[in-house]
Amino acid sequence: MNRKGKIDQRPGRALLTGTALCGFMLLSGSVALAQTLEVEIQIREHLFYPSEVRIPSNTKVKLVIRNLDATPEEFESYELNREKVIVGNSQGIVFIGPLEPGEYPFFGEFNPRTAQGKVIVE
């Protein structure tokens, strides 16, 4: 189960492995997607877009956090136990879940006043 998830995370490697694997991925695509949903969050002017991320419960989700500001930001959440520094004009990957339904706030530790958001698990 976990292995399939990993294949999905790494498109670069998947490209290298050729068409046979692509076919396999297409076949198992629905299953793999259900396990590692990918969600992009952007940081602009120290704000999260979107500031509310809705994801299904009991699913692993790959958050791609794209920092479009020149300054670094630290994606942090006590509820999710996640902490990652994202340098200015770059992106970072954070895996979350599987989670119980509920609200999981996150914030940018370097700009906690404005960079606020939450993951809503449904």
Binding site: N2, G5, K6, Q9, K60, K62, N81, R82, E83, K84, V94, F95, I96, G97, P98, L99, E100
Partner: peptide, 15 residues
Amino acid sequence: TYYLGQADILPGQAA
């Protein structure tokens, strides 16, 4: 363990 979970090296589990 947080970092390893965040990198999907340790499995995510229910608390």
